[in-house]
Amino acid sequence: MSATHTTASVPVHMHGQHLVLHAERALELPSARALIVADLHWGKATALRALGVPLPSGGTAQDLQRLEAVLARTNARELWILGDLAHSRHGWDERALVPVHAWRARWPSLAITLVRGNHDRHAGDPPASLGITCVDGPYVQHELALTHEPMSGGGAALHVCGHLHPTTRLAGRGRDRVRLPCFVQGPHYLILPAFSSFTGAGAWVPSPGERAFGVVDDAIVPLPPV
């Protein structure tokens, strides 16, 4: 049974590339020892607090733990972030940065590249102390075109992006229904789920030729093609 089989990671072969989807909402490119994530939205809670919404803290720390787990499991040397690293300029507030600096100190040799997204343009680049290289997309690496927003072309056969925060709905017997964040595999592209757990459903609408891989707890559930 293919669909009932769930694991923490699922290999995908596309255009001669070997990629691995991880339930931590990250994509691995083993040949480059690189990990790809999108839409971290650091400081979203801080931004809301600044507007008078009394949000408790802890979300960013939780997200960072998940990031550490998958970095450790894949033993990645590179981290490519496909945009919206910071939700707003509040992402770079001193207080918001405390857990981030602690995390960075534990991964000193990790090379991090940020492909700027729409939020990053408002938030500004991360402080130099984080050692993150910032570029505008498309950022082409190992035959992959990396961008924040979906686009056509991009200078490589395979295109990887974020921005859409894709989620998929599942329905079953007994009128059971759930909505899960998901990876989307298209004919020549991959869309990543939002890495941040403090985001809602995005704007992705399935179209023919696409296939979703739902993320549930610590497993990936491949779903039949649209």
């Binding site: 669909a3 595999q185 296939r211 779903l223 039949p224």
Partner: peptide, 30 residues
Amino acid sequence: KISTEKLADRVRRMAAQLERRTPSRVRARP
């Protein structure tokens, strides 16, 4: 809705049903 099943188990069951309902089209990868 109310459930004492693990979310992953529910999702697995739904995915399996979906698979059964999908006509025997070519699957992405056997």
